[in-house]
Design a protein around this nucleic acid. Sequence first.
DNA 1: CGTTGCGTTGAATAAGGTCAAATAGAGTGG
DNA 2: CCACTCTATTTGACCTTATTCAACGCAACG
Lengths: 258, 258
Amino acid sequence: MSTVTTNHAASKVVPLRTLDIGAMRKFEVTCSSCNLRELCLPKGLDDEDLTRVEKIVYARRRVRRGEALFNAGDEFHSIYAVRSGFFKTTILNEDGREQVTGFNMPGELLGMDGIGAGSYHGNAVALEDCEVCVLPFSLVEELGREIPTLQRHLHCVLSREIVRDHGVMMLLGSMRAEERLAVFLLNLSKRFMRRGYSPSDFHLRMTREEIGSYLGLKLETVSRLFSKFQEDGLIEVQQKHVRITNIDGLEQVLGGKH
Amino acid sequence: MSTVTTNHAASKVVPLRTLDIGAMRKFEVTCSSCNLRELCLPKGLDDEDLTRVEKIVYARRRVRRGEALFNAGDEFHSIYAVRSGFFKTTILNEDGREQVTGFNMPGELLGMDGIGAGSYHGNAVALEDCEVCVLPFSLVEELGREIPTLQRHLHCVLSREIVRDHGVMMLLGSMRAEERLAVFLLNLSKRFMRRGYSPSDFHLRMTREEIGSYLGLKLETVSRLFSKFQEDGLIEVQQKHVRITNIDGLEQVLGGKH
DNA sequence: CGTTGCGTTGAATAAGGTCAAATAGAGTGG
DNA sequence: CCACTCTATTTGACCTTATTCAACGCAACG
C-alpha cells in the first residue's frame, strides 16, 4: 500500500490552442514534429491528416511523480498519449488487493479501458514526472470517421492492447518465476531500444513490489531473482539500475525447463 | 496437448445473400430477430441501422466440435459473433506451452486480436458444435464511419475486452487457487444467467485441463478444488455437470484469507 | 467388452510465500 | 554538511501451497 498523494488539482492542464505561444513552443508540441509520432496514435498519417489530428490534441497535462493521471471510476472523456515519463496502471479489487496491469512509456496510449463503461476501470499513476497529450475521445472518434487511416490505426492500437494482455496472461498462467522476470526485462529492453535508449542499460522506475505485482510474484522473490540473474552473469543490478550483460542467456531462461 | 482435428475446409461457409432461402430461414438469420442482439455488436441500434448492419453479416459458418474457427497466423479478415455453441481461445508460445485466454459463449465476439497485426494472434477452437456470424472487418469499419452508434459500440466492445483481460490478470496475479476457481464459476454463472440459462446448474464444455490452463493451475489442482467445494457444500459436481448450491458461500471464498 | 480419454485421489516434492532482521539509499531538517 | 528518518531492498530460515508423479475409477464408444 503506497501513501502517495493523488491530487488531481495539482496537475497543470495547459490548453494549447488558447495560449499565445511563440513559434518555438508551438513547434514543440505538434504531432508533426514529435519524435514519437510513429509509435503513437497518428502513425502512418500523411502531412495533411496529421495537421487535422493535431487539432484534437487540445492540451498537454503534466503529472508529477506519484500523482494519478486518472483513477478508477473517474468519468471517461479522453485517452492519453505519454509524451515523457513513465506510468504504471493498476486495478484494485473489492478486498483491497492491487494488481499492476502494465507500465507505460513515451508513445504509448493510456485510458482505453474507460471507453466501454464511460469511466476508467483502472488507475494510471506517474512513476516519475510525466507529460501527456490529452486526446478527447469523442474527437478521436469524429476524426476517425473522416480519416479511415486514423480509424484503422485506433483499432490497431486497441487490438494490440488485447494482444499485449494475452501475453501477460501467458506469462502469469504458464511461466515460472524466473521466466517471468526474464520476459519482463527483455520486454523493457526492446521498448527502450525502440525509443532510442540503451537496450542493455536502464533505470527501473518501479519498485520491486510493483514488478512483483505485475509478474504475480512477491517482492522478495523478485529481489532474489535479480540476485540470481546477477550470480548467473546475465545482468548487473544495483538497486534500480540494471545492465543486461548476457541477453542470449536471458533469452535462454525461457523454456530452460518447463 | 490435444489431438483434435483443426481442418478448416471441413467448416461449411454459407453465404446468406447468395442463397435463395425461404422467409423462415431468412428471418432466422437477421440481427433484428436475433435474441442475442443486445449482447452482440449491433447493440443499441435502431431498426434502420440494424438493417444496414445485417448487410455486413454476409455469412454464417458452422464449426464442429474440436475444429478451429481460426488459428494463430491465419490472415485476418473478419471478426466473428458466436451465434450458438462454446469456444475456447488459446495462444501457444515458442516452446509449445498452451495458454487458454478465454471461453466464449453466444453473443460474444471473437477474433479482435487479429486487427492489429493483420493476422490472428491466437486460436479459437469450438468446444461443441458451433455457429458464428462472419463480420468482415473492413465492412464493419466502413459502416462504423456512417453509423456513429455502431462505431462507438465497436470501441466499447474492444475496450471491454481489455477490461476483461485485466480481470484475468488480477485473477492470475493475485488470487489463490480457491479464489480463482470461485471467480471462474461465478463468472460463468452470471454469463449463463444473462443468456436465459440457469445460473446455478450448468454443463462445463471444457476439460479440467482447459480450466486449469485458463486459471494458471494444473488439472489435478482444479479437480481437487471441485471436490473441496463439494465437501464444503458450495457446489455439487459430477464430471462436467455443476450445480451451485451456495452462491453466497462461493462469493465468500474471495477474500476469505489474503 | 476392451480401449481410450478424462477425472479423481494420495504421497512426496519443489517453488514460491511468509516472517524477520539487516542494510542501503534518498530525502529532510537542523 | 551531517544526523536522522523513512522507505526500498536484500538475505536467511522456515512454511504453505500448489505441482509432480503415480495409481485408479469412470464413462463413452467402437
